[in-house]
Design a protein around this nucleic acid. Sequence first.
DNA 1: TCGCCTCGTGAAAGTAAGTTTCATCCGTGG
DNA 2: CCACGGATGAAACTTACTTTCACGAGGCGA
Lengths: 304, 304
Amino acid sequence: MAKSPKISASHEPGGLIVHISGLLPSLSPAEQRVARLVVADPADAARRTITDLATAAETSEATVIRFCRSVGMDGYPQLRIRLAAEAARRVEPPDARVVGGDIPPGADLAQIIATIAFNDARAVEETAEQLDPAVCERVVEAIAAAGRIDVYGAGASGFVASDFQQKLHRIGRTAFYFPDVHTALTSAALLGRGDVAVGISHTGTTSDVIEVLEQARARGATTVALTNFPRSPITEVADHVLTTAARETTYRSGAMASRLAQLTVVDCLFVGVAARSRAKAKKALEATAEAVRSHRVGAGRRRA
Amino acid sequence: MAKSPKISASHEPGGLIVHISGLLPSLSPAEQRVARLVVADPADAARRTITDLATAAETSEATVIRFCRSVGMDGYPQLRIRLAAEAARRVEPPDARVVGGDIPPGADLAQIIATIAFNDARAVEETAEQLDPAVCERVVEAIAAAGRIDVYGAGASGFVASDFQQKLHRIGRTAFYFPDVHTALTSAALLGRGDVAVGISHTGTTSDVIEVLEQARARGATTVALTNFPRSPITEVADHVLTTAARETTYRSGAMASRLAQLTVVDCLFVGVAARSRAKAKKALEATAEAVRSHRVGAGRRRA
DNA sequence: TCGCCTCGTGAAAGTAAGTTTCATCCGTGG
DNA sequence: CCACGGATGAAACTTACTTTCACGAGGCGA
């Protein structure tokens, strides 16, 4: 079969379909019928069996195979998967993000989900992009070396603060979180040089948090602020400022996007700290995981 | 095909791979080997013949077929085509290579940040893609109509539960969260028809949460499970199952990715519920925002 | 006009891929 | 210890794919 009329399609990155329609006129009548079906709906063709496709094109399987060879494929299965891939790729454009902005009043749930996910994922990505590794490094260093770490946050940011505290605790760092301002203030008053205080506030204007951070700083602790706004009041009482990048949104849930962004930053810090003492952290984590094991059912794999 | 353990993948527009990795723990060992190959390189798997793939996974063709059925496909050819399509769709950005997996021991902070952000953003996106709007709709409906809503979660998922509770509360829904199992059980015992109980557990095996949800269901409440694993025990006591799509990771912080994914789902539900009574919800939100205003400093401009 | 060649075609045979069935094995719980 | 149920691969079986081959329609030179 040295002189087979095969036209290579292996280096046709962008367009198997284009390729096929290009050499459509050079095909025999029966093959053209096949080609037209394929070009008209690649995804559908990919779903069909060779017999099925042959029938649809009013020809025999043999012709379909010949068609495959004519367009540079080894056989029908290969054509099939290439078609599936093609079809999937060119369905992309629904991605034409209707979702950039806010949620329209009449939106259905699918739209809502897409919008939220888009905003959330974006917030995470953009936050990571603008995070300054140098500042992170300093914060990680301070936390790793700290005698004790206080994490402050109110309302929604309180969850993040609490989460951070728990994480640090799990890798053996002495960390505290206080849901209540007064307790927090008391604690801050007991901080000193070498300790670290982290204040979390999306707006950067939460007076409770600022106040506590200020107190901590006055006592000589290293203060860290995590906020969405790099020039908000909280940054004035912080030695290190880390920012999130959640876009301003309306009432809906700028809160949530910012929450995710905050969590991402917290996670980075956590992993940074953990990486500093990998062995120790790993051991601590395993121990804590072990501790809750008895509260799990179906230890191994989960049944159907 | 009456009670086959098939989990439909037909409404999995975006994520067959995601779907498979979610199901992974519920598969038998031999099937898991197949699944891992497939997830690791879908495009490559699509190119292989069933015998070839079976050999590569050190198992028999029969097992590969079983795997296909387990993930909701009719047979191997269908899987192949779906995989090819998947693989084509995700023409990963070139910089994604470094960040796909886990964090190497010697990584610097910039690398760590990139990796975490990538995984986190991915978890959010993939979760949204595989969320079934129809199920969400039903859950939203139930919550919107509920006399009262209990949200359960332990450990890390507890934060999410608590967050959800707070959100619902803020738009005027009667919602509770209990950090303690006994209190939660007590509360569940008081639920009834028309009430809703939401159980959150990443692994789906947290016995405390399952127990409470079971109780709630026994009392006639509508039960909702939020987990990463569609066939975990918690799904057996839930009327509606919502899944996240955080990839399995090592010790580092699969936890965090899953947290973000959970929060995204919670946010979707929240917005869904809020959208049902837009005016009322907006009013409630404004009122709550007003309530904390006195705790903010520099109310006006905080920008440069 | 007739032969004879060429090419497109599908029927049918042949091969490989996919699917089902079934016996075996192994761990679990009585 | 046995019975049981699930997991598994060997082998039988079915379907899909591929090759072979013969037929028939045009084309072309004699």
